[in-house]
Design a protein around this nucleic acid. Sequence first.
DNA 1: ATTCTGCATCTGCCATAGCAGATGGCAGCG
DNA 2: CGCTGCCATCTGCTATGGCAGATGCAGAAT
Lengths: 218, 218
Amino acid sequence: MSLAERAFRRLRDAIVQGALPAGSRISERSLAASLGISAQPVREALRRLEQDGMVVTLPRRGTVVADFGPDRQAEMGRIRAALEGAAAALAAQRADAAALDALAAQLAAMQAATAAAAPEQVSEANERFHGLIHQATGNAFLIRSLAALRAFDHFGRVRALNATPQELPRALREHAGILAALQARDPDLAEARMRAHVLRSLAVGGLLPPAPRRKRSA
Amino acid sequence: MSLAERAFRRLRDAIVQGALPAGSRISERSLAASLGISAQPVREALRRLEQDGMVVTLPRRGTVVADFGPDRQAEMGRIRAALEGAAAALAAQRADAAALDALAAQLAAMQAATAAAAPEQVSEANERFHGLIHQATGNAFLIRSLAALRAFDHFGRVRALNATPQELPRALREHAGILAALQARDPDLAEARMRAHVLRSLAVGGLLPPAPRRKRSA
DNA sequence: ATTCTGCATCTGCCATAGCAGATGGCAGCG
DNA sequence: CGCTGCCATCTGCTATGGCAGATGCAGAAT
């Protein structure tokens, strides 16, 4: 793996974990020195982070970690719901038999982990399930965008899965419904189910109002 | 503007215009020489193009222009519909009075250009209208992603606008409806209208089946 | 004729050095 | 004491050179 890729992942994890709080100034040179590499890969990593919205860099001024509080998290969640829906729709058209089999296998793994009450493995199977759908689309732009979005609220997702005891089986049922829509080759149904699944999951995590009702409190 | 940014835009335009057909091999060095700059900005431009899905680069092998025929265009269109919808929903929450005024002004400009039968200015006003909504969200990730998506089917959009005589007034009415939803601060309504608007516009351009029906003619 | 091997060459990748622009502090002037 | 202009310094940005890995071809061995 290239040094730029390594630096990118390392910085991304550091940011989402809070090790680099919002507003932190990042210098290409000093960061390169602390990583023991040249400034070029670091620069490349910063550019990618900028495209993902995690840092902002003012030309000739400096690079700082972007601020994403609860509002930004909610925004990214809503965007992710839209993109996951599109991915499900495309997967319903493009997925081949092998991809559908792999999805069924992941669903079974998630069910087994749920029955065994192993939250760690449930979360992992959950991530894999969504990742397989992304891959099944074969769309590079979609895959990349969703990977960036998932980095934002990774911890929020694992928290949401363990929020209530009934959350795990509900997520499992929704996954089964999505897979059924994919197997039925119904893009619109797959999109609707996936979108509802992500939105409801976000609501459990406390990042969105629980229902698409009228606004009552600002 | 930086050399990397210039190289990126130049390459992007060359690709969408067909000057660099799919499968064209791009070498960092030779391209840098032909542009009269160093290899570093060219490399940076290629990385951005890769993230946008326009080129694929195999490590130590080379970089080639990705193949996006009608299928890919349809995919990107569906993704754009989803993202534009999310942007409209966020804009309904975040847009301030100035942004809404600017949108109203662009709508008036589009109406005047439609009345004057000036397709060039109609298309320009159309692009500005959507761009203003993107900016109103204040979400860097969303703005960047939509900018990348719009580069794909730019020509398809201008073609769709001039496909039929009744397309211009219809797009105008839909824009007015979207703006009304934004002014009413209704995220879900704004999202639904924007999404329908983009999907219908894509159908006019021939990139999607006109209704969620089965495809009849390839 | 076919297969294997070594080398010239091309590729993306990285390190180093130096550039212009922007900032902050300090001396000098009012 | 307050303001202004200069300069050291830091920033991102670009140019140059060289690295290892991958490819294709020529020529030797079977």
